[in-house]
Design a protein around this nucleic acid. Structure first.
Lengths: 187, 187
DNA sequence: CTGTCCATGTAAGGCGTTACATGATTGT
DNA sequence: ACAATCATGTAACGCCTTACATGGACAG
């Protein structure tokens, strides 16, 4: 349940509405923690009940009220606690690996097509990440935020590295299946 | 919803009970698709209703009946279709990256402790994977199954590579935070 | 005048987890 | 004698997704 903590993380910078939060997610952590709008609203309500947030209703004539959420002391404590607590061992589910694992039931052609498709998708993802990385670097890292900026770049770099590795792994698999030589890598 | 397809994959080798399936998962794909027992039983019932499986009840005096599930023609068709269909772009949730992203709100000491802990957990995981990889290789790859064996080794190697990359990434982050020099990697 | 943005939510359903329940058999 | 294994499930709850609903403001 990191959604809650990511929300706390954002609100610890400044108070935001649900709508603003959705944008904040999409602009920064979408790649490793997508959040959808209905879930954000529901979670905000829940967190307010739990006392982690305070809600301020801004009434506007003729338009829907806007609700600004502010982190409470309890929220700040909870955020700090979570940020400093190591995560439990978690298992990422990788459907691609299931396809590969049972790929023995496919023909070479079918298997190759699947892997080639995945390799292409990975290359496209890499291109996007590389572009984001480049433009983010270009956009003035103001020196007083150097540390926070560095950490956000780190998350991007993780995305780059892991996709590079996936691509290498796919290319290696493709080569071996094409050649029909099944020699496992030694580590 | 790959659980369904993983079950089909196993049952395409031979009919199994829910209990057997649980063991099959634990012995092979646990690392990229953990399945828990209650979910398996529920999914089996559901798949039988959908006509993907056939259920054979083996009555045993004095003991609980055993139920053996067999893949149907519809199930085989569904499996083949799924195996040959590229997966939709999926986003893996990485709570660790959320911790890092909001790590600017921690002291150096707190951040370092968190990352060191994760690095150690990753090293332990690598040690386990390396051992499994080695013993699996040693255990007689019968030549007629070379292709299927190769594919199962591939999934293991993916686990190894991705954990190696995670470890490198963590060590790089640790170094830079320790040194206080925040120079993003260039790609 | 059509569509996108701003801004809020509700409803229904799927996937997964944890905990609980039962009861014989086999191993130490 | 006690624990682990075999073998089946049910119940309840949590997280997330998709689809639906509302309605003003503003840009092309």
């Amino acid at each position: 349940m990191s959604l809650k903590h990511a929300i706390l993380g954002f609100l610890n910078f400044k108070p935001l509405s649900g709508y603003d939060l959705k944008k904040a997610f999409d602009n920064s952590v979408r790649h490793f923690w997508p959040a959808n709008q209905s879930q954000i609203y529901r979670t905000l309500a829940q967190m307010t009940e739990e006392g982690l947030l305070e809600k301020e209703v801004i009434e506007r004539e003729e338009r829907l009220d806007m609700k600004i959420y502010r982190i409470s002391d309890a929220g700040r404590a909870e955020l700090h606690h979570w940020l400093t607590t190591p995560l439990p061992e978690q298992d990422n589910r990788e459907p691609l690996l299931i396809q590969v694992f049972f790929g023995g039931q496919l023909s070479d052609e079918e298997l190759l097509a699947l892997l080639r498709h995945e390799a292409q998708a990975t290359e496209e993802r890499l291109a996007v990440y590389t572009m984001i990385h480049r433009t983010t670097l270009a956009n003035a890292p103001s020196p007083e935020n150097a540390r926070a900026f560095f950490l956000s770049m780190l998350t991007l770099e993780y995305g780059l590295r892991s996709n590079q590795v996936l691509l290498e792994w796919l290319n290696n698999a493709l080569q071996q299946i094409e050649a029909g030589t099944f020699t496992p890598t030694t580590f």
